[in-house]
Write a protein that binds this DNA or RNA. Structure first.
Lengths: 178, 178
DNA sequence: TCGCGACATGTCAACACAGGAATGTACGAT
DNA sequence: ATCGTACATTCCTGTGTTGACATGTCGCGA
């Protein structure tokens, strides 16, 4: 919220819209959370209501303290290391479903990665056309992360599927030899 | 829990220990959650108490239904796409702290990635020594994901820091020329 | 002018999660 | 014999999160 407001004043509704198209992919949150958070921030003096519009619209602005707090969080608060990945959790137990289904799972992961990668490429082309230099720099860096991540995921999933296939083969040969 | 129990019967305490050394990095959870989950699973008939040991120890076993449910989850339940990343969220607002601090943040990300990568390499070497083929396959595949992810993160962070530095340079030159 | 869709905020119940405290038992070493 | 450690489970409190529901306003086109 503080980050979004640092680009200029906006209402909760505005922030919600901006949030959904830009940040929801890296930080999912619901409307209730956003409004609740605005209330909290307002009570703590990190944001301030600067105007009231038509339908009860309240326009918020980031305060000095808010900006200080934002910068503090950006560079000083230690990043959260552990991310939860159900995708990887499943891999640990993939031996339970047999190598055929396991290979299928990995192949589907590869396909999904390719699909996501293409989507991101589409977004980048769209964003590039309306570039405004310094402001778009960090958005592009984040996008690049997505591109590299999905590319790595495709490679990995294909590699893993091949390894499973190799073991499958080896086992079949072993059984036939006996 | 179901996945861990599919390797054989165990108590909540056993599962907790196994969990901490093997899965906590991809699926953080606390002791309270694990015990609570066991209770729930037991009530739903997906696990069953097979023996009571010394200190109130209850040994659980996965049931037929539990195993069916596990396999169902592994291959049929659609994976969760959105992962939360405070690291990436910060990148979006990095222009707020100036290019110097921003570059510092990215460089620290690169360092952290290298450190994690080394740790994972250490783990792999330790695991390789006590390999038992098919069983260790999927653990190794998961490990490989970690290695590729951290390598990609280092490359990306270094690339991003260089881009920020380039823009910084360009700006400085522009200002000096005026 | 009527109604629909976008605007705009707020509340609620249910559940997930983190972290820690409370409680107690068994075993092995001294 | 007893003391510390590992074993083993349960409960509690506060906070984060989800998804749905409630409420109402404005503007525009038929």
């Amino acid at each position: 919220m503080l980050g979004l407001l640092s680009a200029g004043p906006a209402s909760g509704y505005d922030l919600l819209k901006t949030f959904e198209i830009s940040l929801a992919s890296v930080w999912p949150a619901t409307q209730s959370q956003l409004y609740a958070e605005l209330g909290r921030l307002s009570k703590e003096g990190l944001v301030r209501v600067v105007a009231e519009g038509p339908r009860g619209r309240k326009e918020y602005e980031i305060t000095e303290e808010g900006h200080t707090e934002l910068c503090h969080w950006l560079v000083e608060v230690p990043p959260n290391q552990t991310r939860r990945s159900d995708m990887l959790l499943r891999v640990f137990f993939l031996d339970q479903v047999g190598s055929d289904a396991a290979r299928g799972y990995l192949e589907r992961l590869a396909e999904r990665a390719v699909h996501e990668h293409d989507q991101l490429r589409g977004i980048r082309e769209f964003v590039i056309s309306e570039g405004d230099d310094a402001l778009r720099l960090y958005g592009d860096i984040a996008l690049e992360w997505g591109l590299r991540l999905t590319a790595a995921q495709r490679d990995w999933a294909e590699w893993a599927a091949a390894r499973v296939a190799a073991l499958e083969q080896q086992k079949a040969g072993h059984t036939a030899a006996e």
